[in-house]
């Protein structure tokens, strides 16, 4: 642990500001609360929002897991874990079941979460309407009026052009029947895990300076149409390492001749299944 910093890097005033914003975020599910995002010792786009939320939550007894695209061993995940063990001296883990806090970039673990766990998402763009309406004042008004016609038109245009809704990640959801919310760029495969989750889910966007939350057991509906219901992507393959047929798979090129394999994106889930199979 590096003793020159306050516990978990941030000063106490900043943590209090974050904590007040987080409580309001939980009280208004799916609504984006502005907060005073601080400069962190890594650039925007590397999870500064998630890191600030984690820092505001972290206590000495917490066990932190960090994943990037489902993997514990990628640069972003390794560095964030190392950062918090240096500035807070806390324990880290790669096992989903051992963690009290899980910070994630772009995935939800395959293993079901528990009520005593908190999932923290790194969010690049918190505003689901931003690509359709660039003005913040205007998107705020659309949220105030719950006017989400723009998004329905976008999904409809997908159907008109491609015959199906082509959005496969960052698929927009309606939280508690009120606020249109970005689930962060998780694959739409993970959207059903947001609905009535036992674990609290917090979202932090550092560059955009917004926090939001989905409380446990809250309805999260992926937008769709009656005649074009929400559908999950499916694979013709199984994981080449653990044989799982129902997890989210990454396609990996393995040689110079274009040979490919499909493997679980959730490394802890995959290695857990392999250990189980050997036993």
């Amino acid at each position: 642990m590096t003793p020159r910093y306050n516990f978990a890097f941030l000063d106490e005033d900043t943590k209090r500001m974050l904590r007040r914003a987080l409580l309001k975020a939980v009280a208004i599910p799916g609504y984006q609360v502005p907060f005073g995002s601080r400069e962190m010792p890594l650039p925007y786009g590397w999870g500064t929002g998630g890191i600030q939320v984690t820092a505001a939550l972290l206590g000495p007894d917490d066990v932190l897991k960090v994943i990037d695209q489902g993997a514990d061993d990628t640069t972003n995940a390794v560095n964030i874990r190392r950062f918090f063990s240096r500035v807070a001296g806390i324990a880290t883990t790669e096992h989903t079941t051992d963690a009290t806090l899980i910070q994630t970039r772009h995935r939800i673990p395959e293993t079901s979460l528990r009520e005593d766990q908190i999932l923290i998402f790194q969010v690049p763009e918190p505003e689901p309407l931003r690509t359709l309406e660039p003005r913040e004042a205007e998107t705020r008004t659309l949220h105030a009026l719950a006017d989400y016609g723009l998004m329905h038109v976008k999904l409809y245009e997908d159907i008109a052009q491609y015959g199906h809704i082509a959005t496969s990640y960052d698929y927009p959801v309606l939280v508690d029947g009120r606020f249109l919310t970005s689930p962060s760029p998780i694959p739409k495969f993970d959207n059903p895990k947001l609905d009535r989750s036992p674990a609290l889910m917090l979202f932090g966007a550092g560059r955009e300076k917004r926090l939001y939350a989905i409380p446990p057991y809250t309805s999260v509906e992926s937008l769709a149409f009656d005649d074009h219901p929400f559908e999950l992507q499916r694979w013709d393959h199984q994981c080449a390492l653990c044989g799982s047929g129902d997890s989210y798979l990454d396609e990996v090129v393995v040689d110079d001749h274009g040979a490919r394999m499909f493997v679980c994106s959730d490394t802890d889930y995959c290695s857990g299944r392999r250990v189980e199979a050997q036993a």
């Binding site: 106490e12 904590r19 987080l22 409580l23 939980v26 505001a56 206590g59 000495p60 609290l200």
Partner: peptide
């Protein structure tokens, strides 16, 4: 212990607000 007492209290408040 201002740092850890407020951290522990906050975590209970957060869970209270979430449940």
């Amino acid at each position: 212990d201002p740092v850890f007492d407020s951290q522990r209290t906050f975590r209970e408040l957060l869970q209270a607000m979430a449940r």
